Computed example of a mutant assay.
Amino acid sequence: MRSVDAYDTVLLGSPVWNVRAPMIMTTFTEALDFDGKTVIPFTTHAMSGLGTTERDYAASCRGATFGEGLAVRARRSGTPTTRSGPGCAASVCSEADAPIHANVIRPHHGAVRHQRSR
C-alpha cells in the first residue's frame, strides 16, 4: 500500500508479540501519511491485550486521531475474549458472537498450531 489518502478511517490489525505489534507494522505505518485520518488498532493476543500498540501507533502514525482499540484474546477453551479501550476493560463474547476470523492458539506436542474458532 502506497497511500491511505482514499480512506478516512484506517483499521490497523496485527498480533501482539511480546507486548507490542511486530516491527513490520511500525515500518509500514511510518511510510504512510496519516494526517487527518482516524486510526483504530485491533490485535490478537495470548495475554497482553493491546500491549503498547496504541502508544506505538500514536508515534508512527503522525497526524492521526485514534479510535478505541480492540484486542481479541484466545483462551484454551477456544472462546475468544474481546478487550477494548484504555486499560482494556474486559468483556467476554459468547461462542455464537465470536468473530469468525479469530485464531485459537493451542500447544500441540511442544509446537504451536493455529485453528479457526468456528
Rank of each mutant, 00 (worst) to 15 (best):
V19K: 00
V72C: 13
A96P: 06
R76M: 13
Q115L: 09
N18H: 02
S117T: 05
F34M: 12
P15H: 00
C88E: 04
T53H: 03
A71D: 02
P99W: 02
C61E: 03
S117E: 01
S117L: 10
A90L: 06
V4G: 07
R113T: 07
F42E: 02
D33S: 07
G63D: 08
P80S: 10
P86C: 09
V39Q: 01
R75V: 14
I105L: 12
A74P: 02
D33N: 11
V112P: 05
G49Y: 02
V104F: 02
P22A: 06
G85T: 15
F34D: 05
A96I: 12
V10T: 06
T81E: 15
P86S: 13
I100W: 15
G69H: 07
H114Y: 12
T81D: 14
T65S: 14
D35N: 15
P22R: 05
S84G: 15
G78H: 05
H45F: 10
S91Y: 00
Y57A: 09
A21G: 10
P80A: 11
E95T: 08
C61P: 06
T65W: 02
T43I: 04
M47A: 13
T26V: 14
L70H: 09
R62V: 14
V104K: 04
I105F: 05
G13L: 08
V104Q: 10
R20K: 02
I40V: 15
K37M: 10
G63T: 13
D97F: 00
A111H: 09
R113N: 01
E30R: 14
L32R: 00
G63L: 12
A71C: 11
M25E: 00
T82G: 01
G51D: 06
A46C: 11
C93T: 04
I40C: 14
V39W: 02
L50R: 02
L70M: 08
V72T: 07
D35Q: 15
I24R: 01
G51H: 06
V10G: 04
L50S: 12
E95C: 01
T81F: 07
N18G: 02
L12C: 04
L32S: 00
Q115K: 06
R118E: 07
A59V: 05
A98I: 01
H108L: 04
